[in-house]
């Protein structure tokens, strides 16, 4: 009898397969985000040749570079959105995607983020919020919760974190949502929405880092984080009828904003055409 042919994972053609298994730690959520992203693209039938991935520095920056097989710009720490804006201006037909960490996008690159949202640049930005600087071993980030122990806050974090999704929404983005690596199915839909919507789209993805963050806050495995995400989140549709006291420490997931302002590079092109008449 012929041996059963092994197929396993169906979407390997989207990945730089020769580099698997990934360098991510055991139970890290970065792989789950990449998995969900690949499935979202498969369902949308987007040709990866039409995608330009742009990223910065950090563990989560490895999701697009090297693992996702598309044209890729691996830029300096914090600068992904600046490079991506340049790509979008010169190549408006491309699907320009930024995937990077909370330290990268909300810390060192924070100003690029809010101004790209304000200008409504046509990018899909996925912020991998693992609440820490993972790659460098667990320093506090602008997304680390108040009171948490990290290598640079050994007595607890004295700072409040950003509510980055609300911040980007207030700055003017066309689409903003927040999900976690537990909510893979709605996350997939949200990624699809972000990649098809005109203007600046932003999805904050709470992602587990069991090694550089989790082990200092009492969550040493991926499973513990996923259970936490499952039990401590409320959908934004439900939360809108609740008082802040009722919401308490719960994390709001779901769509934060959706609007239809005209996209930056479109305005820019139209103005240029007008000027040349």
């Amino acid at each position: 009898m012929m041996a059963k042919k092994k197929k396993a994972y169906r979407l390997k053609h989207y990945l730089r397969e020769e580099l698997l298994p990934t360098t991510f730690c055991q139970g890290c959520g970065c792989g789950t985000v990449l998995n969900t992203y690949a499935q979202a693209i498969e369902e949308l039938q987007i040709n990866p040749k039409d995608i330009v991935s742009v990223t910065g520095i950090g563990c989560s920056s490895w999701i697009p570079s090297p693992y996702f097989k598309a044209d890729t710009l691996h830029t300096t720490h914090g600068r992904a959105i600046a490079f991506a804006t340049g790509v979008k201006i010169m190549k408006p037909e491309a699907n320009v995607v930024v995937i990077a960490g909370d330290g990268d996008l909300a810390g060192i690159g924070g100003n690029h983020l809010i101004h790209a949202a304000r200008r409504n640049v046509g990018l899909a930005v996925f912020l991998i919020n693992n609440m820490i600087y993972g790659m460098t071993g667990g320093q506090v980030s602008p997304m680390t919760p108040l009171g948490d122990k990290t290598t640079t806050t050994p007595y607890g974090n004295p700072e409040y974190p950003f509510n980055i999704a609300e911040f980007v929404a207030a700055a003017g983005a066309n689409y903003v949502a927040r999900w976690t690596t537990y909510h893979v199915f709605p996350l997939m839909e949200s990624i699809q929405k972000a990649m098809t919507k005109d203007g600046f789209s932003f999805v904050e993805i709470l992602t587990q880092c069991p090694v550089s963050y989790g082990r200092r806050v009492g969550m040493r495995t991926g499973e513990e984080f996923l259970k936490y995400f499952k039990e401590n989140t409320i959908n934004s549709l439900k939360a809108k009828d609740m008082t802040p006291e009722e919401i308490g420490d719960k994390i709001i997931v779901g769509k934060i904003v959706e609007r239809n302002r005209k996209e930056f590079t479109t305005i820019l092109r139209e103005m240029n055409e007008e000027r040349r008449k």
Partner: peptide
Amino acid sequence: RFCELLCPEFAIAVV
């Protein structure tokens, strides 16, 4: 397909 999507290492396929 929850396992397939959650797996961080692309090790599962539900056929």
